[in-house]
Simulated scan of single mutants.
Amino acid sequence: MSGIVVHLPEGSGGHVVGQAHGGAVTLRLGPGERARFGRGAPDVPVEIRLADAAISRLAGEIVATADHWQLSNHSTRHSCLVENPEGAGEYLRVPPRRVGAPIPFEFSRVVLPTRRDTTVSLQVFAPDHLYMDPQHTAGPAGSHTVTAYSLDETAAYFLVLVALCEPWLRDSSPVAVPTTPQVVERLRGHPVYGGLTARAVSSHIDYLAEEKLRTGAAAPPGTDRGVRRKGKREAVVTVALRFGIVREEHLALLPGRTAEPAGRGS
């Protein structure tokens, strides 16, 4: 993956300038590109507009680099919180007026305080963290081999992928790919990720399909949302199983089963 992806989930209270309002939106930044966020104004242009009176007109700026991203906090009053949703509470606080703070997380949530009961947040998917091939041996400089699909097996997105693949690993002819609610229910007993919501699971599936496993072109415009979602789930399962990314031993990452799951749906 080159550059970063900034994602505003549906209902986040913000939108990307130039894109339609209403649903989830995504902004892609290549290395060296930047996106400003805040309430904006005619004389304060921003790429990501966040409609809350407690957020500065220019609250901050995200800059993509070759292998990570940086966050500048232009607020003079409030810190920006950068959470690692996969780090069991790990977070960074970027203080007011801090410029170019490097963010090390592969998946982050930028959280801004508001005067409402909820905060406003952006999701940022960073460049892949590359891992050497496990069978790698030292060779001439510049000749090291890295894995074609760079996945962190301790991350929440990998756990979601295992849950999607589980029926195929336990039964060679399953009825259907698990739905998002079924994945949420399957992970409910996990000690770290048992609280994943349907929205979070959907975001991880988007990340797997579009960035990690690069499953191909998006569905044609006008395709029903449910059909698109099902297509993404099926695509990531196909790639993960075809290339041995998820194997039977990975089932041990899932919480134990206390009862048979509900019937699979589409």
Rank of each mutant, 00 (worst) to 15 (best):
V239R: 13
Y157P: 02
S108R: 02
G60I: 02
M1A: 04
V192P: 04
R214W: 00
R34F: 12
C80Q: 08
P95C: 05
S150Q: 15
G13Y: 05
A138M: 10
R98W: 12
Q135A: 15
R98H: 14
L122W: 00
P261A: 02
G256Q: 13
Y91A: 12
K232H: 07
A156S: 08
I48C: 07
E185C: 02
T114Y: 05
G222P: 13
K232M: 09
G142Y: 11
E211R: 11
L213H: 06
A41K: 12
G216S: 00
A138E: 10
G13F: 10
D117V: 15
S2Y: 01
A88L: 02
G189V: 00
E185K: 10
S75Y: 06
P261V: 04
S72C: 08
T223D: 10
Q123F: 06
G23D: 13
R116T: 14
V124T: 01
P167E: 11
A240S: 05
L151Q: 00
V44C: 12
E153I: 04
L169A: 08
V124L: 00
A155K: 05
S173N: 08
A41W: 10
G11I: 10
Y91R: 13
S150C: 08
W168K: 00
D171G: 03
L161F: 01
T145V: 13
G32F: 07
N84Q: 02
R57I: 04
V6P: 01
G30T: 09
A64L: 10
A138Q: 09
R39M: 07
R28H: 05
Q70M: 14
V94E: 06
R109Y: 00
S72L: 05
G231A: 15
P220E: 14
A252E: 01
H144A: 14
W168H: 10
S79L: 12
V124P: 01
G18N: 07
S56P: 09
T179W: 12
H250D: 13
V160C: 02
Q70N: 14
A54D: 06
R242H: 13
P220D: 13
T197M: 07
H129R: 15
E210N: 08
R34N: 14
G256R: 14
E86Q: 04
S266D: 03
L254P: 14
L251C: 03
G256W: 03
L208C: 02
G40V: 10
A156H: 01
A101I: 07
L251G: 03
V46T: 05
